[in-house]
Amino acid sequence: MSNIVEIQSITKKLSKRPVLKDLSLSVPQGSVVGLLGKNGAGKTTLLKCILGFIKVDHGKILTLNEDPWILSDTAKARIGFVPQSFRPYPWLQAGQLIDYTASFYTHWNKALVDRLVKEWGLDLSGKVSVLSEGEMQKLSIILSLGHEPDFLVFDEPVASLDPAARRQFLREILDIVSQRSCTVFFSTHITSDLERIADTVAVLKEGSIDFCGALDDLKDAVKRIRLRTNKNIPVDYVMEGALSQKINVHDALFTVRGFDQKKREALEKEFDTKIEVEDLNLEEIFLEMNR
């Protein structure tokens, strides 16, 4: 399977501050990738580099097999993008903005757009300047889907949506990915949404990718371990892959990355006890990875 995006050790500084540092990442065709990262981790900058809005300092990006800085019209027509905040042409009515956007594309699925406007309860006569944040976000999502792109890029698409609208959005994306071959790359802070729709998760930490792989693999790999033993646990005990640890003589609590049956057996033997292994949800894993 080919990759929709291929990034090889890119670096980007914004006003002398290093934002992306030697970052590499591949987005395979047909995948739904959720991008997680703390505020300031570089999520938006990464998305902008992929789309060619800003130029990387070093390294190489291929988006749809092209240099994003000089992306062809054909490639652009295949991309749908929802920025974090977007409010162009405040004097236009929502309906006029839809027509104006449609005029840039050779292909526009009017039936799809009309259906979404109706289902999402958007008032087309409302002026762009007076739409609420949530309404504006709905409108920009609709605008990004009208030309039926096969590569969707969303920068926190649901940040301003109410829970009902968020669910409608997720359902629509799932419908799109199950009906036709479509790749989705989105950043979010809502980990439960990511768990529903993403198959791959990329964790951005201080400008580079800390983890990228199957969501299930991440959940299977990061575990919380409770250790109770009659032996003394050294205060400076070092456990391989530990993200955090609390040690109190006979009790210890570790969060470990890359924990498996072999390590479990070794640990149980070392301390002559049975340990308890707990599953963590994505939010907890994210917090542990960003300690």
């Binding site: 997720l170 359902r171 799932l174 990915v177 199950s178 529903r196 729709i197 198959d199």
Partner: peptide
Amino acid sequence: VREVSSSLEINPMTVSK
């Protein structure tokens, strides 16, 4: 797979896995 993924609103890949 399709029915489960759309009724539960989860990725179809998860269900087929």
